[in-house]
Amino acid sequence: CLCSQPSVTRTVQKDGPNKGRQFHTCAKPREQQCGFFQWVDEN
């Protein structure tokens, strides 16, 4: 991610068109995240 740490892969849980879709995001706690976000299928 943007803070030079490994990102984590998560899955959208919220109902909607992206439910079940995976994405990479910053591994830090929400209030400390660098803002990195990337869909797995758009690499």
Results as ranks from 00 to 15, higher is better:
residue 1 C to V: 00
residue 1 C to S: 01
residue 1 C to L: 00
residue 1 C to G: 00
residue 1 C to F: 01
residue 2 L to A: 05
residue 2 L to R: 11
residue 2 L to S: 06
residue 2 L to Y: 13
residue 2 L to I: 15
residue 2 L to E: 14
residue 3 C to G: 00
residue 3 C to S: 00
residue 3 C to K: 00
residue 3 C to Y: 02
residue 4 S to M: 09
residue 4 S to E: 03
residue 4 S to A: 05
residue 4 S to P: 03
residue 4 S to T: 07
residue 4 S to R: 09
residue 4 S to I: 05
residue 4 S to G: 08
residue 4 S to V: 02
residue 4 S to L: 07
residue 5 Q to L: 15
residue 5 Q to V: 15
residue 5 Q to R: 10
residue 5 Q to N: 12
residue 5 Q to Y: 06
residue 5 Q to G: 04
residue 5 Q to D: 05
residue 5 Q to K: 04
residue 5 Q to T: 14
residue 5 Q to C: 15
residue 5 Q to S: 11
residue 5 Q to E: 11
residue 6 P to M: 01
residue 6 P to E: 09
residue 6 P to R: 10
residue 6 P to S: 10
residue 6 P to L: 05
residue 7 S to E: 15
residue 7 S to P: 13
residue 7 S to A: 06
residue 7 S to T: 15
residue 7 S to L: 13
residue 7 S to W: 15
residue 7 S to R: 08
residue 7 S to V: 14
residue 7 S to G: 15
residue 7 S to N: 04
residue 7 S to K: 04
residue 8 V to Q: 09
residue 8 V to C: 11
residue 8 V to P: 04
residue 8 V to K: 07
residue 8 V to D: 02
residue 8 V to L: 12
residue 8 V to T: 15
residue 8 V to M: 15
residue 8 V to N: 07
residue 8 V to G: 02
residue 8 V to R: 11
residue 8 V to H: 04
residue 8 V to S: 07
residue 8 V to E: 07
residue 8 V to A: 09
residue 9 T to R: 15
residue 9 T to V: 14
residue 9 T to M: 15
residue 9 T to C: 09
residue 9 T to E: 02
residue 9 T to W: 02
residue 9 T to K: 06
residue 9 T to A: 11
residue 9 T to G: 06
residue 9 T to D: 02
residue 9 T to P: 03
residue 9 T to S: 10
residue 9 T to Q: 11
residue 9 T to L: 12
residue 10 R to G: 15
residue 10 R to Q: 15
residue 10 R to Y: 10
residue 10 R to L: 11
residue 10 R to T: 10
residue 10 R to F: 12
residue 10 R to S: 11
residue 10 R to E: 06
residue 10 R to D: 14
residue 10 R to M: 13
residue 10 R to V: 09
residue 11 T to M: 13
residue 11 T to N: 06
residue 11 T to R: 13
residue 11 T to S: 12
residue 11 T to P: 07
residue 11 T to E: 14
residue 11 T to V: 09
residue 11 T to W: 11
residue 11 T to D: 10
residue 11 T to A: 07
residue 11 T to G: 07
residue 11 T to L: 09
residue 11 T to C: 07
residue 11 T to F: 10
residue 11 T to H: 08
residue 12 V to W: 13
residue 12 V to R: 06
residue 12 V to E: 13
residue 12 V to D: 15
residue 12 V to H: 09
residue 12 V to S: 12
residue 12 V to G: 06
residue 12 V to A: 13
residue 13 Q to P: 05
residue 14 K to L: 12
residue 14 K to Y: 10
residue 14 K to M: 13
residue 14 K to T: 11
residue 14 K to V: 12
residue 14 K to E: 13
residue 14 K to R: 14
residue 14 K to H: 13
residue 14 K to I: 12
residue 14 K to W: 09
residue 14 K to D: 15
residue 14 K to A: 11
residue 14 K to Q: 14
residue 14 K to C: 08
residue 14 K to N: 14
residue 14 K to P: 05
residue 14 K to S: 14
residue 14 K to G: 13
residue 14 K to F: 05
residue 15 D to T: 11
residue 15 D to S: 11
residue 15 D to M: 12
residue 15 D to H: 11
residue 15 D to I: 12
residue 15 D to V: 08
residue 15 D to L: 06
residue 15 D to C: 07
residue 15 D to A: 10
residue 15 D to P: 13
residue 15 D to Q: 13
residue 15 D to G: 06
residue 15 D to F: 03
residue 15 D to E: 12
residue 15 D to Y: 13
residue 15 D to K: 09
residue 15 D to R: 08
residue 15 D to W: 03
residue 16 G to E: 08
residue 16 G to C: 07
residue 16 G to W: 01
residue 16 G to P: 01
residue 16 G to Y: 01
residue 16 G to K: 03
residue 16 G to S: 08
residue 16 G to T: 10
residue 16 G to H: 04
residue 16 G to A: 04
residue 16 G to L: 02
residue 16 G to I: 02
residue 16 G to N: 07
residue 16 G to M: 06
residue 16 G to R: 01
residue 16 G to Q: 04
residue 16 G to V: 03
residue 17 P to S: 09
residue 17 P to D: 10
residue 17 P to A: 11
residue 17 P to G: 03
residue 17 P to F: 05
residue 17 P to C: 03
residue 17 P to L: 03
residue 17 P to Q: 09
residue 17 P to K: 09
residue 17 P to V: 06
residue 17 P to R: 08
residue 17 P to H: 12
residue 17 P to T: 06
residue 17 P to E: 07
residue 17 P to W: 01
residue 17 P to N: 05
residue 17 P to M: 06
residue 17 P to Y: 04
residue 18 N to W: 07
residue 18 N to G: 05
residue 18 N to A: 07
residue 18 N to P: 02
residue 18 N to V: 02
residue 18 N to S: 07
residue 18 N to E: 09
residue 18 N to R: 04
residue 18 N to H: 06
residue 18 N to D: 14
residue 18 N to L: 08
residue 18 N to K: 05
residue 18 N to I: 04
residue 18 N to C: 14
residue 18 N to Y: 10
residue 18 N to T: 07
residue 18 N to M: 06
residue 18 N to Q: 06
residue 19 K to T: 07
residue 19 K to R: 10
residue 19 K to G: 05
residue 19 K to W: 06
residue 19 K to Y: 10
residue 19 K to Q: 12
residue 19 K to S: 09
residue 19 K to E: 07
residue 19 K to P: 01
residue 19 K to D: 03
residue 19 K to V: 09
residue 19 K to N: 07
residue 19 K to C: 09
residue 19 K to M: 07
residue 19 K to A: 08
residue 19 K to L: 08
residue 19 K to F: 13
residue 19 K to I: 08
residue 19 K to H: 10
residue 20 G to A: 04
residue 20 G to Q: 03
residue 20 G to R: 01
residue 20 G to S: 05
residue 20 G to V: 00
residue 20 G to P: 01
residue 20 G to D: 03
residue 20 G to F: 04
residue 20 G to K: 02
residue 20 G to T: 02
residue 20 G to W: 02
residue 20 G to C: 05
residue 20 G to L: 02
residue 20 G to E: 04
residue 20 G to M: 03
residue 21 R to P: 01
residue 21 R to Y: 00
residue 21 R to D: 04
residue 21 R to G: 01
residue 21 R to M: 05
residue 21 R to E: 02
residue 21 R to F: 00
residue 21 R to N: 02
residue 21 R to W: 02
residue 21 R to T: 01
residue 21 R to H: 07
residue 21 R to K: 15
residue 21 R to Q: 06
residue 21 R to A: 04
residue 21 R to L: 05
residue 21 R to S: 03
residue 21 R to C: 03
residue 21 R to V: 01
residue 22 Q to G: 07
residue 22 Q to W: 05
residue 22 Q to P: 08
residue 22 Q to H: 14
residue 22 Q to Y: 07
residue 22 Q to K: 07
residue 22 Q to E: 13
residue 22 Q to S: 11
residue 22 Q to L: 07
residue 22 Q to T: 12
residue 22 Q to I: 12
residue 22 Q to R: 13
residue 22 Q to M: 12
residue 22 Q to V: 09
residue 22 Q to A: 12
residue 22 Q to D: 05
residue 22 Q to F: 06
residue 23 F to Y: 15
residue 23 F to V: 03
residue 23 F to E: 00
residue 23 F to T: 00
residue 23 F to D: 00
residue 23 F to S: 02
residue 23 F to A: 05
residue 23 F to P: 01
residue 23 F to W: 02
residue 23 F to R: 00
residue 23 F to M: 01
residue 23 F to Q: 03
residue 23 F to H: 05
residue 23 F to L: 02
residue 23 F to I: 03
residue 23 F to K: 00
residue 23 F to C: 09
residue 23 F to G: 00
residue 24 H to G: 02
residue 24 H to E: 15
residue 24 H to T: 11
residue 24 H to S: 08
residue 24 H to R: 15
residue 24 H to L: 15
residue 24 H to V: 14
residue 24 H to Q: 13
residue 24 H to W: 14
residue 24 H to M: 13
residue 24 H to D: 09
residue 25 T to Q: 14
residue 25 T to E: 09
residue 27 A to G: 12
residue 27 A to I: 04
residue 27 A to Q: 06
residue 27 A to T: 03
residue 27 A to E: 01
residue 27 A to L: 00
residue 27 A to M: 06
residue 27 A to Y: 05
residue 27 A to P: 11
residue 27 A to H: 01
residue 27 A to R: 08
residue 27 A to W: 03
residue 27 A to S: 08
residue 28 K to W: 01
residue 28 K to L: 10
residue 28 K to M: 04
residue 28 K to G: 08
residue 28 K to D: 02
residue 28 K to P: 00
residue 28 K to V: 05
residue 28 K to Y: 04
residue 28 K to R: 10
residue 28 K to S: 08
residue 28 K to A: 10
residue 28 K to T: 00
residue 28 K to C: 04
residue 28 K to Q: 14
residue 28 K to N: 09
residue 28 K to E: 03
residue 29 P to K: 13
residue 29 P to S: 12
residue 29 P to A: 10
residue 29 P to R: 12
residue 29 P to V: 11
residue 29 P to E: 10
residue 29 P to M: 08
residue 29 P to T: 10
residue 29 P to G: 04
residue 29 P to L: 07
residue 29 P to C: 03
residue 29 P to Q: 15
residue 29 P to W: 00
residue 30 R to G: 12
residue 30 R to E: 15
residue 30 R to D: 06
residue 30 R to Q: 13
residue 30 R to F: 09
residue 30 R to P: 13
residue 30 R to S: 13
residue 30 R to L: 14
residue 30 R to W: 08
residue 30 R to A: 15
residue 30 R to T: 15
residue 30 R to V: 12
residue 31 E to A: 10
residue 31 E to G: 14
residue 31 E to H: 11
residue 31 E to D: 15
residue 31 E to Q: 11
residue 31 E to S: 14
residue 31 E to M: 08
residue 31 E to F: 07
residue 31 E to P: 15
residue 31 E to Y: 01
residue 31 E to R: 08
residue 31 E to L: 08
residue 31 E to T: 08
residue 31 E to K: 14
residue 31 E to W: 02
residue 31 E to N: 13
residue 31 E to C: 04
residue 31 E to V: 06
residue 32 Q to T: 11
residue 32 Q to D: 08
residue 32 Q to W: 06
residue 32 Q to L: 08
residue 32 Q to M: 15
residue 32 Q to I: 07
residue 32 Q to K: 05
residue 32 Q to F: 03
residue 32 Q to A: 14
residue 32 Q to R: 12
residue 32 Q to V: 10
residue 32 Q to S: 14
residue 32 Q to P: 00
residue 32 Q to G: 12
residue 33 Q to I: 00
residue 33 Q to D: 06
residue 33 Q to S: 12
residue 33 Q to T: 13
residue 33 Q to H: 14
residue 33 Q to K: 11
residue 33 Q to F: 02
residue 33 Q to E: 10
residue 33 Q to C: 11
residue 33 Q to A: 14
residue 33 Q to V: 04
residue 33 Q to M: 09
residue 33 Q to R: 15
residue 33 Q to G: 04
residue 34 C to K: 01
residue 34 C to L: 01
residue 34 C to F: 00
residue 34 C to H: 01
residue 34 C to A: 04
residue 34 C to P: 01
residue 34 C to T: 01
residue 34 C to I: 00
residue 34 C to G: 03
residue 34 C to S: 00
residue 34 C to E: 02
residue 34 C to R: 01
residue 34 C to N: 01
residue 34 C to V: 00
residue 34 C to D: 01
residue 34 C to W: 00
residue 35 G to E: 13
residue 35 G to Q: 09
residue 35 G to P: 03
residue 35 G to T: 09
residue 35 G to W: 00
residue 35 G to R: 09
residue 35 G to V: 01
residue 35 G to A: 06
residue 35 G to F: 00
residue 35 G to I: 00
residue 35 G to S: 11
residue 35 G to M: 04
residue 35 G to L: 01
residue 35 G to K: 13
residue 36 F to A: 03
residue 36 F to C: 05
residue 36 F to S: 05
residue 36 F to V: 00
residue 36 F to D: 05
residue 36 F to Q: 05
residue 36 F to L: 02
residue 36 F to G: 02
residue 36 F to P: 02
residue 36 F to H: 14
residue 36 F to M: 04
residue 36 F to W: 08
residue 36 F to N: 01
residue 36 F to T: 03
residue 36 F to Y: 11
residue 36 F to K: 04
residue 36 F to E: 02
residue 36 F to R: 01
residue 37 F to Q: 05
residue 37 F to W: 10
residue 37 F to V: 07
residue 37 F to D: 00
residue 37 F to P: 02
residue 37 F to C: 03
residue 37 F to S: 06
residue 37 F to T: 08
residue 37 F to G: 04
residue 37 F to I: 06
residue 37 F to E: 05
residue 37 F to K: 14
residue 37 F to Y: 10
residue 37 F to M: 13
residue 37 F to L: 10
residue 37 F to R: 08
residue 37 F to A: 05
residue 38 Q to M: 10
residue 38 Q to V: 07
residue 38 Q to D: 04
residue 38 Q to R: 11
residue 38 Q to T: 09
residue 38 Q to A: 11
residue 38 Q to G: 08
residue 38 Q to L: 08
residue 38 Q to W: 02
residue 38 Q to P: 00
residue 38 Q to S: 12
residue 38 Q to K: 08
residue 38 Q to N: 06
residue 38 Q to H: 04
residue 38 Q to I: 06
residue 38 Q to F: 00
residue 39 W to P: 05
residue 39 W to A: 05
residue 39 W to V: 14
residue 39 W to K: 09
residue 39 W to L: 03
residue 39 W to R: 02
residue 39 W to C: 03
residue 39 W to S: 05
residue 39 W to E: 09
residue 39 W to M: 06
residue 39 W to G: 03
residue 40 V to C: 15
residue 40 V to Q: 13
residue 40 V to S: 12
residue 40 V to G: 11
residue 40 V to A: 14
residue 40 V to L: 11
residue 40 V to D: 09
residue 40 V to P: 03
residue 40 V to R: 10
residue 40 V to E: 14
residue 40 V to N: 12
residue 40 V to K: 10
residue 41 D to M: 01
residue 41 D to W: 04
residue 41 D to L: 06
residue 41 D to S: 15
residue 41 D to T: 10
residue 41 D to R: 09
residue 41 D to A: 10
residue 41 D to G: 13
residue 41 D to V: 12
residue 41 D to Q: 12
residue 41 D to E: 14
residue 41 D to P: 12
residue 42 E to G: 15
residue 42 E to W: 03
residue 42 E to V: 12
residue 42 E to M: 11
residue 42 E to S: 13
residue 42 E to D: 14
residue 42 E to Q: 14
residue 42 E to L: 11
residue 42 E to A: 15
residue 42 E to R: 11
residue 42 E to N: 15
residue 42 E to P: 13
residue 42 E to F: 07
